[in-house]
Amino acid sequence: MIGYRIGGLHVWSEFEFPNLAPIEKTVREPADVVVRFCDEVGAPRDPRFQNALIAAGEEDFLFRPGPCLSFRIQAGRDIAIARGPGATDDEVRVYLTGSVWGALCHQRRLVPLHCSAVACKGRTFGFAGPSGAGKSTLAAALARRGHAHVCDDVCVFDAADGAPRVNPMPKDLKLWRDAAEALGYARGPRVLGDLEKYYVPLPTPAADGPFEMAALYLLSDAGAAPAIARVQGGARLRDLLASIYRSEWLNLIRPPAEVFVQVAALARRLKIFRFSRPRTMARFEEGLALLEAHMAEVAEGGEGS
């Protein structure tokens, strides 16, 4: 077993993460999560929902992303993996730090957010939106302009009250070929299953987190000039719920009433803005300049309204 810190949790893992530094052996704290291999993961008893991909039972979730690979997540602390010869290490790693971790967070009553994030003036800013909304490209462009890259795709809110804080998930930055070229990034290996998407190496943040999230920007397309507007009231809660990673599994794993109370409390503590901008490269810089000025204002304590 190798010790890691992943998304703010202490993990003992039989799977070796090639991209993560192990925790030093002097750390003796008990593990929050154990990752282990087995021949057969079995299945939840009396699942409340099941299809070819998942089965959801009480504190028990089965995820079968392919014929040679299954994950079973139980009680928010045990991840069992059954892999056949067709499943690569890269697939195991990508699912573990992605969908599997999403289900684990739901079981642990932690809120994982589908966003990329960068730091500005010592505070963290997230960019949320559905797949294809431009989260990764935006964070990568801001990193090019000197903002430390905090995470790509997913971060996890920690359970503490007070200012909302996030732990980044260790996922590699993925960019479309044209975005990587336009931003001047050297392309790494090609992403499995995505013909024109590539891993892009970026320096990892100097600190581990958690990082205080100063604001979350919801990305949307606009035909006209870029604009930023505060999101208030019911829309704030709806948008935050929609930004939860693997939100389609949330109600299979947690009671909706409990999620409502928790996310409403989070929404109350988090500034949320809608950043709408044209998706053309020609006007990309204009949107970036507006966003940077807005982030700087919020980082310095302004309302950014």
Binding site: A235, R236, R238, L241, N251, F260
Partner: peptide, 24 residues
């Protein structure tokens, strides 16, 4: 339903459907 204040609104969630409504 569940109810919580947020900004100047009262937010309601229907417990069965999960639909969310903001009343201002």
């Amino acid at each position: 339903h569940l109810e919580t204040p947020l900004d100047d609104e009262v937010i309601l969630m229907h417990a069965e459907s999960g639909e969310i409504y903001g009343l201002a």
